[in-house]
């Protein structure tokens, strides 16, 4: 068995194919920008999650620190339970505030973490106590309308 030029071409072909996968992973995909080597799990209950989806980012100060892993409905409290994983490198105090925010006007929804001032940090499996539900446009409009109506009443008196 000896080497032939054909082998060279096939070798080049395989290298080019693997390089394409690598390009897709590094340049196109997010393998290079965000990979969680070690992470810990957190939970949070929300009154309303709006359009939050699994795999949505968890951000703090605009930096992606984790991902939403699952969303379930808690039948005891009638609230949405969101589980997420956060990178081990980022630690948050126990009284961290979790809100559901929207990227831009029509963008996707994500979880924003506002760190509190507690000395103790959140551990794996902990539940974030303080949460703020997603902003729902309809309820916002109705609140605005009621406020306007109430303003009119007081002005008349």
């Amino acid at each position: 068995m000896e080497r032939k030029t054909l082998d060279l071409w096939v070798g080049l072909f395989v290298v080019a194919g693997l390089a394409a996968v690598l390009v897709l992973a590094m340049k196109v995909g997010n393998l290079s920008t965000f990979n969680m080597s070690e992470s810990y799990a957190l939970q949070a209950d929300f009154d309303n999650i709006g359009g939050l989806k699994a795999r949505a980012p968890v951000k703090s100060a605009g930096v992606v620190v984790g991902r939403v892993t699952g969303i379930t409905f808690d039948n005891a409290s009638y609230r949405a339970r969101v589980s997420m994983v956060v990178d081990k490198r980022y630690q948050f105090p126990k009284d961290t505030f979790a809100k559901i925010l929207t990227a831009g006007l029509l963008g996707e929804q994500y979880i924003g973490l506002d760190p509190g001032g507690d000395e103790v940090n959140l551990k794996s499996g902990d539940k974030i106590a303080k949460t703020e539900p997603a902003m729902v446009l309809e309820s916002l409009i109705s609140k605005f309308m009621f406020d306007k109506a109430a303003d009119g009443d007081t002005a008349k008196k």
Partner: peptide
């Protein structure tokens, strides 16, 4: 079977 995924990856990469 070996060629197909390599070709598809190259197609996507050059398409991007």
């Amino acid at each position: 079977v070996i060629s197909m995924p390599l070709l598809a990856a190259m197609f996507s990469a050059i398409g991007v």
